[in-house]
């Protein structure tokens, strides 16, 4: 209770001190005003100087007076309690009505949060700096000047080479047919038809696979205007799941120095879906789980697993 009272007294002194500061500021301003105006026009030069000096002295005295007043008041105000780590915001804890205005606890929470956030962000940034997963040229180097140098050579592969690699992969797998389109510029879009099971659309950037989407064999791969549809998802849950897994596979197969190996590994992996509806899960031995067949294929062994059985 004593604290509360003293806070009240301090407040009075505070307002007085604030007005004292205002007075000090205005008297200081007057000093500079008079200096700026210079000597007033009087009959003799001496008279001019005398008047100016006496006026200047007056003003300086008033500055001195105001300053003294302020110093006196500042003693009354007292020091802010430094015992509290939150300084003056710690005074919020004195609020007796905790239920209505839980400001203090919220403040503490926010403080903790921001501390944690900073800590984790630091950890994350140091981790991310170690891994360079730079798959597109835009992320390469902040300075525009250096960018052409940093750009990986794998992004400037001539289209003929891409065609070559793709057709070689197509010949490797007889049950898989690969059609190549270039709807927009040099970037290739592959339409992979796997047996009578699925159709996958693979969007490439030179020899990097950017995106893939898997649909059922009988679903449309062309949109209404006759262009290849690289956006809409499959209507079937199985193939939505397979699309998700294929995207995971894209991130898994990474070998920036040899992009053709990456494409080949991905296609080999994708080919294991030829038995999507025929292979039971290697762990639980069943075909169905929550209405879905084993949609996951192991990246190394290509064995079939349910999504939840693979761990």
């Amino acid at each position: 209770m004593a604290d509360v009272v003293s806070v009240g007294v301090n407040l009075e002194a505070f307002s007085q001190a604030i007005s004292a500061i205002q007075a000090l500021r205005s008297s200081v301003t007057r000093v500079f005003d008079s200096l700026k105006d210079g000597m007033k026009n009087k009959e003799t030069l001496e008279g001019r100087e005398k008047a100016f000096v006496s006026e200047f002295q007056d003003i300086l005295q008033s500055v001195n007076r105001d300053l003294n007043e302020l110093e006196r008041l500042s003693n009354l105000v007292g020091r802010p309690s430094e015992s509290h780590p939150l300084h003056n915001s710690g005074l919020l804890s004195l609020d007796p009505v905790q239920d209505k205005t839980p400001l203090y606890s919220q403040l503490l929470q926010a403080y903790k949060w921001s501390n944690k956030l900073q800590y984790h962000a630091g950890l994350a940034s140091s981790l991310l700096n170690q891994q360079s997963l730079k798959r597109s040229a835009n992320q390469m180097g902040a300075s525009a000047k250096r960018r052409p140098k940093v750009q990986p050579s794998t992004l400037v592969i001539p289209p003929q080479y891409v065609d070559d690699v793709i057709s070689r992969i197509g010949r490797m797998f007889p049950d898989m047919s690969i059609e190549l389109f270039r709807p927009n510029g040099t970037s290739a879009v592959l339409l992979v038809t796997l047996g009578k099971v699925l159709k996958a659309i693979v969007v490439m950037r030179s020899l990097f696979i950017d995106r893939t989407i898997v649909r059922a064999f009988n679903e449309n791969v062309y949109s209404e205007d006759g262009k290849i549809d690289i956006w809409s998802r499959s209507n079937y849950q199985v193939f939505q799941k397979v699309t998700d897994h294929a995207t995971t596979a894209l991130l898994h197969y990474q070998l920036p120095q040899m992009p053709d190996v990456v494409v080949r590994s991905f296609m080999t992996w994708l080919r294991s879906y030829i038995k999507l509806f025929q292979a039971p899960c290697q762990r639980c031995g069943k075909y169905l789980q929550d209405g879905l067949p084993p949609t996951w294929r192991d990246f190394r062994t290509l064995e079939a697993f349910h999504d939840t059985c693979r761990q």
């Binding site: 099971v197 059922a216 064999f217 193939f239 509806f277 025929q278 075909y287």
Partner: peptide, 18 residues
């Protein structure tokens, strides 16, 4: 019916289980 599959024999085991 198992809608995503168009080849009857492929999905037979799966349908049995269902």
């Amino acid at each position: 019916e198992y809608c995503p599959c168009i080849v009857a024999n492929d999905s037979w085991n799966l349908m049995m289980e269902f």
